[in-house]
Write a protein that binds this DNA or RNA. Structure first.
Lengths: 199, 199
DNA sequence: GCGTCAAGACGGACCGTCTCGTCTCGCAGT
DNA sequence: ACTGCGAGACGAGACGGTCCGTCTTGACGC
């Protein structure tokens, strides 16, 4: 996908890859605040200037590193749709649970989260490139279910997406409890049925 | 309440206050990563050693500063209970919306969030001292409603709390949209009714 | 020859430790 | 009670170290 290279620079792809890899490794090892550009350059076997030439900050480097990871497996631009909403959502939630329990994913995403909290512009780009797209994919599946009559007509789909997928992310972020398939199931059941007694 | 002085240290309360105030101000002005202990000491009119003597890190200083704020107005250890669950939750959610839109609260809490993401031990202490307590308070209100028959018997209350209060925090954290009373109402309605069509 | 590259020198900001001299406290001994 | 003394905490800041972001050098490739 190097159509962006249509611009100008004679950029060393080998160095670029080495930098992104080193950034990801180091972020996982020492965390975001202790991540230094000097250390990235050293591990990548690269001059500091090569990093400063192409990225404005360590946050941007880490952002690109994680983006490269996420873009690779972003082949699936849609959620499964077997007609059974609950089963489909459960499948996706369980996949998310597995991802969140992967130590590599956990550490690099935590570092990225810090980077996004500190850099508002980068956070906007993240939303534009990833978060919003993922949100739409989930919303699409709910809309399909709504049209099929499996979701009430007056339900706000944005709120619904947040209610189904938010609690898992929150528990991960705050470490307020274990991330298990059972927890995901509980969230899903509660979200689908709501709190009110069903007459 | 100086019964804790029964220990040993002759600690200068004036300096302590000045340090916490300076930390909070600076965190709001420059953000967490650019917050430096030297700057805190300078603004507080205090020697660096006085900070290093009592706190292990800038994260701990900021934690205490925010904790001091939150403890002051923690007089309310319970949610309103008028018998109308939806109205009571709406009241609380609207108060949360106001808080999240306050620039001072926003910036200091964002800095604290970074500190908690970077320091796992501090995050555990935060959960123990604040998050868990607040969670229980909300859960208590839902339990009361459940006993009164306003919430279905088989609803998992932990999941319910997450579903009602989580989306607002998520939107704040990721800046994925405006924090409005209307959004809070939508979340609340969706959570209470669930997604399924109500025959 | 022009731009990128690895390497690293450079002044500056903060780090965390330390050493000063000052002060306030609590506890003698008188 | 008055006084003298040791223990800490205090403000201030010097210190070596790390990393910052910029700049320079010389080699390499287009």
């Amino acid at each position: 996908m190097p159509q962006t290279t249509a611009e100008r620079p004679r950029r060393n792809e080998k160095s670029r890859q080495a930098i992104l890899t080193a950034a990801l490794q180091l972020a996982g090892e020492v965390g975001y605040t202790k991540l230094s550009i000097e250390a990235i350059a050293a591990r990548a076997g690269v001059g500091k200037q090569t990093i400063y030439r192409w990225w404005p900050s360590k946050a941007a480097v880490l952002f690109d590193a994680v983006l490269a990871l996420s873009t690779n497996d972003a082949g699936e631009t849609t959620l499964p749709d077997t007609g059974d909403l609950e089963a489909d959502l459960r499948t996706v939630l369980h996949a998310t649970v597995r991802e969140l329990n992967d130590p590599g994913y956990d550490r690099s995403m935590r570092s990225l989260t810090v980077a996004l909290l500190e850099d508002e512009g980068l956070a906007a780009e993240y939303r534009r490139n990833l978060a919003q797209r993922m949100h739409e994919v989930k919303k699409d599946r709910l809309r399909s279910a709504q049209l099929a009559g499996h979701v009430a007509e007056d339900v706000d789909l944005d709120a619904a997406v947040e209610m189904i997928f938010g609690p898992l992310m929150n528990r991960w972020l705050t470490r307020s409890g274990p991330i298990t398939p059972e927890y995901a199931d509980t969230i899903l059941t509660t979200a689908l049925n709501g709190l009110r007694p069903r007459g």
